[in-house]
């Protein structure tokens, strides 16, 4: 059979040479194990799984030291002190809050308070620029790199229009959350260019809090507008109440497009185009590999996002709406 002879020759020695070719570390016990501190906000998540699995599939020996603040940011100072003491090879920080706490905003870095001398990778930050973590997506020049998990608006709109033609689009959002507002601004701009009529429904703010009792009414108010899709921006408040108002939408036969994985989970949203937390974790692992193994300075690496996203379609909802997925989407969608 083909290349059998070559293959038998290669099997033993090839690994190391190949490793070099594919930017892999050299095998062998003589190499040190990389020590990585992982700082998270609320326990072990999918992102952390992705990060851990990346090293496993790449066979990079790492020692992961997990520190969780359990939603209590006051614990962070102690963890930072411990890290400064332990001097690991890399620090992995999860979420906007932890990231700002550990490495500081780009214009307010205090070497006394923040970690500056250990390479740090931030992950699960939805808006690294908006939150002030970095100035832009260019290489930081600091000992820091990271990723964003936002899916570009054009890709999201294109996912909707590929599913069914979109002429009228409704959006419900939380005017109190920066992320949400930014997303709707961009949505407004894009839909205008594409000639899609946008119907905006901001959630009324009562006592400084978005009023969850108004959600069903907002959905119903969009029914007479004959919208083709209801768009839900990434927003923790909306994610929390997704089940309720997506059910209302389904009752009125409105297909819902969700921009965040949280909104899709356990809801009646029809579809979403998202960056999987698991893949975001793998991306962080890839960045860590380049820092640790390939010895590229973190400050020389740009802030990246995924290049391919996961299209998730709820086939039960599709069936109920009588909107079966187009054949082309069936080829690459995840049907849940």
């Amino acid at each position: 059979m083909i290349k059998v002879s070559r293959r038998t020759l290669m099997t033993g020695a090839a690994g190391a040479a190949l490793g070099a070719a594919a930017a892999l570390p050299a095998f062998g016990a003589e190499r040190n194990v990389f020590r990585i501190y992982m700082v998270t906000l609320r326990g072990w998540t999918d992102t952390d799984d992705g990060f851990r699995d990346y090293f496993e599939t790449r066979r990079i020996p790492v020692q992961l030291i997990h520190r969780d603040v359990n939603r209590d940011m006051s614990k962070l100072a102690g963890i930072i002190a411990e890290i400064k003491q332990a001097k690991p090879h890399l620090v992995y920080v999860w979420g906007t809050g932890i990231s700002i706490g550990v490495i500081g905003k780009h214009n307010a870095i205090d070497p006394a308070k923040h970690i500056t001398d250990i390479p740090t990778v931030f992950t699960n930050v939805s808006s690294p620029i908006g939150s002030g973590l970095v100035k832009d997506l260019e290489p930081t020049g600091r000992n820091v790199t990271g990723s964003t998990f936002l899916v570009p608006m054009t890709a999201q709109i294109s996912a909707m229009t590929s599913y069914r033609p979109v002429n009228r689009l409704g959006v419900i959002f939380n005017p109190d959350e920066q992320n949400s507002v930014e997303t709707v601004d961009e949505l407004r701009e894009r839909t205008q260019v594409m000639g899609i009529k946008l119907f905006e429904r901001p959630i009324p703010i009562v006592d400084g809090e978005p009023d969850k009792t108004t959600l069903r009414g907002l959905v119903e108010s969009l029914v007479p507008e004959k919208i083709d899709f209801l768009y839900i921006p990434p927003d923790s408040f909306l994610s929390k109440h997704a089940r309720d108002f997506t059910h209302a939408a389904l009752e009125h036969r409105l297909p819902t497009f969700a921009a965040a994985e949280g909104t899709l989970k356990d809801s009646y949203a029809l579809m979403g185009l998202i960056s999987r937390y698991y893949n975001i974790g793998k991306l962080a692992g890839y960045q860590a590999e380049r820092i640790l193994v390939n010895r590229i300075a973190p400050g020389a690496m740009p802030i990246e996002g995924l290049t391919r996203y996961s299209l998730i379609i709820n086939k039960e909802v599709a069936k109920e709406l009588d909107l079966v997925p187009p054949m082309l989407m069936l080829r690459f969608a995840e049907l849940s």
Binding site: R6, R7, A14
Partner: peptide, 15 residues
């Protein structure tokens, strides 16, 4: 063949 390594030039070309 599972578990064996492809010739180096193939892999280099692939990447």
């Amino acid at each position: 063949n599972v578990g064996q390594v492809l010739p180096e030039d193939w892999v280099q070309l692939a990447f």
